[in-house]
């Protein structure tokens, strides 16, 4: 009947208008759930690269996670040419150097200090120049590359941006973007 169809239409139209309001309200609610500006601002850590010493691991903090900063010495850079992967038996030289960040004349390993296996924090041996994860025996070399399983991949590299002699963690600079593209890090 004409009446009931017009009534049904009006009812649906009204329901539609109410729906628009409900969606707008849901949008506002979603935004209220977002991380706060102060949280997002704290998501950037600036590292002063001039403060680090060669072959001395320093643990920084970024977004609640430990960050390994290891300045490479000449000996470390030279020996990396000879590195062998226990996984593949092949030299890892080509991959190793690309894991490092070059600032000025110095090279640094900057990675998230969590084992890519199950998240424990590996320990660094200065003499062996390698990382050993006590939880399941995983090992990494002095560029963060995996040398002994079970870790599935090398230590992850955090997003970074080179700014003069400082490194800003949390921002994606061109060097980091290249590392992601070539699959060096996730």
């Amino acid at each position: 009947m004409k009446n009931s169809s017009r009534r049904g239409f009006m009812g649906k139209a009204f329901g539609g208008v109410a729906g628009v309001g409900a969606i707008a309200a849901l949008f506002a609610m979603k935004k209220s759930w977002d991380p706060l500006p102060s949280v997002k601002a704290a998501g950037f850590t600036t590292l002063d690269m001039s403060a680090y010493k060669e072959n001395e691991l320093v643990v920084e903090k970024w977004r609640g996670k430990p960050i390994f900063v290891l300045k490479q010495s000449k000996a470390m850079l030279e020996s990396e040419d000879k590195n062998m992967s226990q996984l593949t038996g092949k030299t890892t030289a080509a991959i190793d150097k690309t894991r490092l960040i070059k600032i000025g004349d110095a090279h640094y390993m900057v990675t998230i200090g969590l084992c890519t296996h199950l998240g424990c924090i590996p320990g660094y041996d200065k003499d062996e120049k390698s990382f050993l994860c006590a939880c399941h025996g995983g090992k990494y070399d002095d560029t963060g590359m995996v040398t002994k399983s079970p870790p599935p991949r090398g230590l992850d590299i955090p997003p970074f941006k080179i700014d003069g002699n400082t490194l800003v963690l949390g921002e994606e600079g061109p060097e980091y973007k290249k590392m992601k593209e070539t699959g060096i890090t996730l």
């Binding site: 009446n3 009534r7 009006m10 009812g11 139209a13 009204f14 208008v17 109410a18 309001g21």
Partner: peptide, 12 residues
Amino acid sequence: FAIFALLWKREI
């Protein structure tokens, strides 16, 4: 919203 509420009420 109020206008649509009025129109629906009138229909009913």
